[in-house]
């Protein structure tokens, strides 16, 4: 059982923001970096399936410069066996990321390919799907349960409004993993130390093609109209909230 997990180091913006001179992105000084939350669940799910199978390998793949190895090492500390980083810098749209990953993923001949449903910084929910499109693999988006069969997997697909579809998908397949599918393990200090020794192979990026989109300008959203600040003590604020709700319902 081999599972490839596509992971991303995401940028987290604090309360203050400044933009780069060309206004096309946030000034990196205002960003912190972390492993994408969805990808921790995807990694955990891959680890559990390989552990249940009794043997196999979890391979994490990512696109970016050397810094993204921090996020990849988190996955290795959780128990992933090795990593492959596709060397690239600058902003990429999700279809370009999928192009960067496609060859690596194909070369691994995995039984399953996971990606998080979306990344917390870009929220395109597209990389996993785009990868499936490029590799012409079957895929299911927003998966909340996986049961492996012979050449197939039975998965739950979480729809809006709490509805669920049960889907039987041919494998190998690309599944995008939803948060809450499991409870990701914490890496022990010892595992974090050991992860430093695990292999992250670096590959050169291929042709990423034309960007599917291009940021023209970033800006702070205009403040919503109609916001009313409620001042005063708790009882006073609660009273005012009650009045507003009653006004809206009237």
């Amino acid at each position: 059982m081999k599972i490839v997990v596509a992971v991303k180091q995401v940028a987290v913006l604090g309360d203050e923001v400044e933009f780069t001179e060309d206004e096309r992105d946030v000034d990196p000084d205002y960003l912190d970096f972390a492993l994408n939350e969805w990808d921790t669940y995807a990694t955990e799910e891959a680890l559990r399936l390989v552990e249940a199978a009794g043997s196999g390998e979890v391979v994490v793949v990512s696109v970016g410069d050397e810094d993204v190895e921090d996020a990849m090492r988190r996955c290795l500390a959780m128990g992933a066996d090795r990593g492959i980083r596709v060397e690239a810098d600058g902003r990429r749209d999700p279809i370009q990321v999928a192009r960067a990953l496609a060859e690596v993923v194909q070369g691994e001949n995995a039984d399953l390919v996971f990606a998080g449903v979306q990344s917390s910084d870009s929220v395109q929910a597209a990389t996993g799907g785009a990868l499936a499109g490029l590799l012409d693999m079957p895929s299911v988006a927003v998966v909340t349960r996986i049961e492996l069969g012979d050449g197939k997997a039975t998965v739950n697909r979480e729809l809006e409004g709490g509805l669920v579809d049960v889907v039987e998908v041919d494998t190998p397949a690309v599944l995008t993993i939803q948060t809450g599918i499991n409870e990701p393990r914490y890496a022990t200090l010892r595992a974090i130390k050991q992860a430093e020794e695990k292999e992250i192979e670096v590959r050169a990026v291929g042709d990423l093609g034309e960007p599917a989109s291009h940021v023209r300008k970033m800006f702070v959203p205009p403040k919503g109209e109609g916001a009313e600040m409620l001042n005063g003590g708790a009882a006073e604020v609660a009273q005012r909230i009650q009045e507003i709700v009653q006004e809206k319902l009237a």
């Binding site: 940028a11 987290v12 913006l13 946030v26 291009h214 940021v215 023209r216 959203p221």
Partner: peptide, 12 residues
């Protein structure tokens, strides 16, 4: 982008 803290115009 960035947890809805900034908006962006994107072109194609």
């Amino acid at each position: 982008f960035y947890g809805s803290k900034v908006n962006a115009e994107v072109e194609f």
